[in-house]
Each structure stands twice: as structure tokens, then as C-alpha cells.
Write a protein that binds this DNA or RNA. Sequence first.
DNA 1: ATAAAAAGGTGGTAAAAAGTGGTAAATAAT
DNA 2: ATTATTTACCACTTTTTACCACCTTTTTAT
Lengths: 143, 143
Amino acid sequence: MFIGEFHHTLDEKFRFSFPKKFRNDLENGFVITRGVDNCLLVYTNSEWEDFANNVSMLPLTNKSARDFQRHILSGAVEIQLDKTGRAILPEHLRNFANIKKDIVIAGIGDKIEIWSEEEWMKRITEISKSSDNIANSMEGLGI
Amino acid sequence: MFIGEFHHTLDEKFRFSFPKKFRNDLENGFVITRGVDNCLLVYTNSEWEDFANNVSMLPLTNKSARDFQRHILSGAVEIQLDKTGRAILPEHLRNFANIKKDIVIAGIGDKIEIWSEEEWMKRITEISKSSDNIANSMEGLGI
DNA sequence: ATAAAAAGGTGGTAAAAAGTGGTAAATAAT
DNA sequence: ATTATTTACCACTTTTTACCACCTTTTTAT
């Protein structure tokens, strides 16, 4: 279970370190790809396999499906942490998430999100203002 | 499973190299043909066989089907990589995809797309802007 | 409260791998 | 048969990756 909010930075080689608490679950490699809402998503290998297979089988004849495949599959990168717990964030992922230097790594239960700190702050502020509305709109989703 | 986004260039002989990560799956030859949305499609031999069979069985009585057959089957080229992992991109495929020098090679699950860098950037920017809409339209496709 | 030790994070360097340009050989065409 | 064009291989350069060492911050014990 991934929880917590961690503020890290990219160095000039676009490396960043993962929070120590997450490393055990990631030591056998993982996948980062584009998510929704301008953030990146981290998948463990086994979760990724199921998800990627489903995405890969979407029909070529549907435009949204093609775009979704490009978004998810071409965005994906397999990563192994180095001995100090760092990874390199490729250019296409930085561009998508608007990441320059300061990032936020957020544990969201069974997944991890990576944000540019700026975008994260905007999002969190927005959520704080309207958490009651958001909670209301969860009715019917089984919470 | 092909994933990732790679930016390569054609040299003056119209050669380009495939990403190292894709080469194992392509070493026994593959097929490039016209795709949808101004990009080229790369299929491994076995994937191509299934795809091409399905396309060639489309009904002769349907005009769109006939055009689709022309599009896919007449555009196809069988290719073998050289020892350094490169291939030559024929003129009719360059013309179709508007490819000059800078290309993007995108892993899309069981296939690979080749784009002119310029067209790719347009497409991926468009997708990023509307990623939540695209995600919504994936509801019901079993994701 | 202060000091020492440990853990986590950062910058740099060296080795390996991937990509690109060029050249030689082979094939095809005139 | 000679020339032009294409194909395959070789070598170099640039980029990437992995490891090492240091520095900073936090924690614990006296």
C-alpha cells in the first residue's frame, strides 16, 4: 500500500530518487507511463502486464482507442532503480507532466503518481476547496 | 510487447535505426505499411499474417473495404534489418507519412508506429489536452 | 544538549552501449 | 563490360547507464 506525499527534485541528468518506503515494492523493476490529469503513473510489473494487454487489444478501427494506446503504451518506460534508488525520467514524460525540476511523488493506494510540484499544488488546492462536493459525487461508487 | 517513444533520424540514404529494445522481436524480418492517422505501421511477421489475412477477407462488395485493402496491402514492404539494426524507408511510405528527416518510433503493444516527428508532436499534444475525455471513452471497452 | 553514527540524497566519473557516417563489395542495368 | 545503384559491414563518436564517494540531515545515546 503506497501512501504519503514526497517532494523531490530532478538533477541536471533528469534523475530523481524514489522515497525509501516505496523501494521494496519496486526493486524488481516497474513501469512509468502517462496518466490522466497531467500526472505520471507508476505500475508494478504484474499490474502493468494486465493493463497493457487490455490496452493493446483495443480495436484499430476506433479513433479514441488508437489515441489511448498511443498515450499509454508509447508513453511507457520500463525502469530499474540504481543502487542509490534513483531513476531517469525520459523527455516525453517530463514534457507531458510539465516537469522541470521539482516533483511530487504521491502514494495512492495500489499506485504511485508523479507530478510537477506546481501542478500538484494547483490540484491539491482545488481539491481542498471542494472536498465536500467531491465526496458527494462519490455516492454510488461504493464508498 | 512494444512500448516507448524514440526519436531517430533518416540519413541521406533514407536509412534509420530501430531502437535496440525492439530488435529482438524484429530480427526475423517484419512488414511496414501505411497506417491510419498519417503514420506507418510495423508488424512482426506473425502479427502481419493475421492482420493481412483479415484485411484481405473483407467483402469486395463494400467500397470502404476495397479502399482499405488498397491502403494496407499495396503499401506493405517486407524488411530485414542490417547488422547495425537499420532499415531503408521506401519513398511511397515516406510520402504518405510526410517524413523528411526526423521521425518518431512509437511502441504500441503488438505493433510499432512510425511518424514524422512534426506530425507526432501535433498528435500527442492533442491527445494530452483531452486525455480525460479519451479515458472516459474507454469506459465500456473493458479497461 | 551535544556529539557521534547512520541513513538518505546528490554530484561526478568511468565504462558500456547505442546511433550515425562512411566505405567497400556486390548486384543490376545500360 | 563498365558504370551506377543498392546493400552490407566496419569504425568512430556520442549518449546513456551504473557505480562510487561525498555531503547533508536525522536519529539516538550519553
